[in-house]
Amino acid sequence: MAEQKKIEKQLSLPLKNAVQMSVRNMKVRFGRAIIITTSILLGIAFLTSVRAGNAFNMSLILNGPEEISSLLAVDIAEVNARQGWLVSLSLLVCIVGIINAMLMSVTERSKEIGTMKCLGALDKFIVELFLLESLAHGLIGSIAGAIIGVLTMTVVYLIQYGGLIFQIFPTVVIVKDVLFSILLGTFLAVVGALYPAYISAKMEPAEAIRREV
């Protein structure tokens, strides 16, 4: 009897339904989704462009003509350090932006969250919904950002060095950079959503419903 009761007591939110709900949420709150995605996009575009630029430089130094490579090799270490700072700062701003936007989304939806809890949603369902949404923002933003970053840098180097660029195009390094950026962007988006998701999951249903925004 006790065994049977355990089996009956299953609560579930199938992934398919969760994805559906997240997508719908993003459609309805499209403006916010755009803001979050854009913030990731910009951060990642910057990161990717810096890394792609470095890849081009390295490739020019190694494979390019003598006069260019000697010019470039001068203070590459110092430039890299400065760029590292800028990129870290931009990603930090980006993650703070995500946390802020997601927190706002939690406040805005507190009634909805409370209602779902009254209907039997577990804390983890709520976390799942928020993380899924953030995962989507992160993926879309960082894929777009990575592509934009690489394209921009290619155009910049094309203008500066002309067709030479295509002879020394560092394909492998750039593909690696793009993948790294996408992973990092998605990771940051999900990390940024963790705290807001936790807060929303821990809300008491009675209180969440009562709260007027």
Partner: peptide, 22 residues
């Protein structure tokens, strides 16, 4: 508790509290 809310109790609110996006 969540299970209890899900299976044993149905809630109706003054402000309806339907999920607006559904």
């Amino acid at each position: 508790l969540a299970w209890l809310r899900c299976r044993k109790i149905g809630y109706i609110f003054q402000t309806f509290n339907l999920i607006p996006v559904m």
